[in-house]
Design a binder for these strands. Structure first.
Lengths: 342, 342
DNA sequence: CTGAAAGCGCTAACAA
DNA sequence: TTGTTAGCGCTTTCAG
């Protein structure tokens, strides 16, 4: 704790002196409290402008016991930063925080982190790879907390998650409806709930239609394009190759499409591909990718609204746990299998 | 300023009471000050552990006048969030901040933002789209400040930038060395310094080798894949099509390669492509992308080191302005033009 | 409508 | 080696 730098801080006192009023009056102006005579109001406003004064949020925090600063905790593991999703999240939350006049602390945590939520107004956990203990800490400290992108069964905490299972199921049902029977799945990092649930959705859809779950049609990856490429090669070269592949992310799906093209396999004539994310990159390329859209920005915004509500509540409210629905975006990368045609 | 939530804060007093010592002793333990008897030391440590106490950084800030919190300011314009670079930056700075025990505030700013640096220990500005006024404010307030990804000529502020011009020049020189004479350039968003400098590097290389700068070989874009696609189509269908294209970002270069492939144009036999970024995505695909590597993570880390140094200085040091060198990564997407062969 | 004064949680002299 | 106390910059009763 012995580091940092000083800045000869301009204080409310300086403003008061310049305006010829007491510090309380200045405080009232800063806080837009009604009940300041117009004459004084403008004197203070002028002084503030002239000095370019901004109040210290630290002092405000201390005096009020209230905090506008919220913390966004993102687990720091390799894979997470290669995902479309983190950036969308940061963007959504960052923008919303600015709108709501909240200060956003960004914490990239790992199991060795020492997060200090003391004085923090609220916390958003994005995913829950190894940081359940931090969530417990935040909850124990009575700090408004919401977990996103992870439906939390075993803790009494608010959460907003994407219905990954439903989305995956929907996608695979769609393929089945098209007539596909040999449907492969390229998973993401299965220790993330999202990837695990997508896998489950895949299995559920197969089961529902009495299609067998075949080991050789499931390839597990870490979400990287490299592993997606390897997975695609493996699947496409199978003697009894699948006629459709459900891929756990768009960026991997794009890689799969690239591999197919290189192998002279036509999309969607020879193979159908469905991704997950609705990453704008999927729109370009020769064949627009059919995918599952997840409301990432909505999740980000909802979490902040929820947090804000919690922060303004006096009493503890019961926790809310929600799944946000996904949407299948049908574009050009799927069709009925050839065999079903000819 | 009237929002936020309270958390009945556990204070140093509670620890003191439980440990049976005075608050100063507790403070000494927290700050690892030597001169606390072992017996008391462990009593306090036990109490801290038992209560799960963490000191309030706000109170610490107020008492010491020093701040561990730094602010990362990123301009919020559409394009910036589609870039590889922002994520790398956040990752680099976020990780480094954790290591250095600094709290990282994330500010997505636009011209209407009202950034309050009062009490902030230091600021990093990533890029400088429309927020020069904020930089001026920070500097005026004597807050340690460093600007990254933008070489600032007209302000007395530290900056660390990538040598975009040199990198671009190097890339184009390489193409020229290979025998190319008809070299096109797809730019990024030219109001970013990076894109502008890359364009300048392109022009400088042409000029140096007495190659004409042809309007029809330069296409301006916003860095998006969509516009890259349009640009590629336009260039590749030109009657007198270029034999090489220098593209201002890897993600756009990948799109260009995709278009070429769709058009039956071989890479690198028919056209050579060079990107910029060293985005790992460039490694996959049928032809690995030759590109210019920019030390983004180093830039992020250096900026934080620099900032930390500034924060620990008592006196103002002279400002440092540096360009970080790039590196041409030769992979498979370039070769001598056909005409020069046959 | 305005000012004086107490206090938020902590640190840093200063005393003891 | 430890405790007492005066602030840090701000908000918020409570008088006036």
């Amino acid at each position: 704790m012995r580091k940092g730098s000083t800045s000869k801080t301009l204080s409310i006192k300086d403003v008061a002196k310049l305006a010829g009023v007491s510090i309380s009056t200045v405080s009232r102006v800063i806080n837009k409290n009604s009940g300041v005579k117009n004459r004084n109001l403008s004197k203070v406003q002028d002084a503030i402008k002239q000095l370019n004064f901004k109040p210290s949020v630290f002092a405000q925090r201390l005096a009020t016991g209230k905090s506008n600063v919220i913390s966004l905790v993102i687990p720091r593991f390799e894979g997470i930063f290669y995902s479309f999703y983190v950036l969308e999240l940061i963007r959504g939350i960052g923008t919303m925080a600015a709108v709501m006049n909240l200060d956003l602390l960004l914490h990239l945590s790992d199991e060795r982190s020492n997060l200090n939520f003391n004085g923090i107004g609220g916390v958003i956990f994005a995913d829950l790879i190894k940081n359940k203990p931090f969530v417990e800490d935040a909850v124990a400290r009575n700090i408004p907390t919401v977990v996103i992108n992870n439906y939390v069964e075993d803790m009494n905490v608010n959460c907003i998650a994407i219905d990954n299972k439903g989305g995956a199921e929907h996608a695979v049902n769609y393929l089945i409806g098209l007539g596909h029977k040999k449907i492969a799945h390229i998973t993401g990092e299965l220790f993330t709930q999202a990837a695990a649930h997508r896998f489950e959705g895949y299995k559920a859809a197969l089961k529902k239609h009495n299609l067998p779950l075949e080991d050789r049609y499931v390839v597990k990856t870490d979400y990287s394009r490299g592993q997606a490429r390897a997975a695609a090669e493996r699947l496409l070269k199978l003697p009894d190759a699948p006629t459709a592949i459900f891929v756990a992310s768009d960026s991997m799906a794009l890689e799969v499409m690239a591999v197919a093209r290189e192998l002279g396999i036509r999309i969607p004539a020879d193979i159908s591909i469905v991704g997950f994310d609705d990453n704008p990159s999927g729109l370009y390329g020769p064949v627009a990718l059919t995918t599952v859209r997840q409301p990432l920005v909505k999740m980000a915004q909802d979490s902040l609204k929820e947090l804000n509500a919690l922060m303004n509540l006096k009493k503890k409210a019961g926790v809310k746990k929600v799944y946000l629905p996904t949407e299948l975006v049908v574009r050009e990368s799927c069709q009925s299998p050839q065999s079903a045609h000819t």
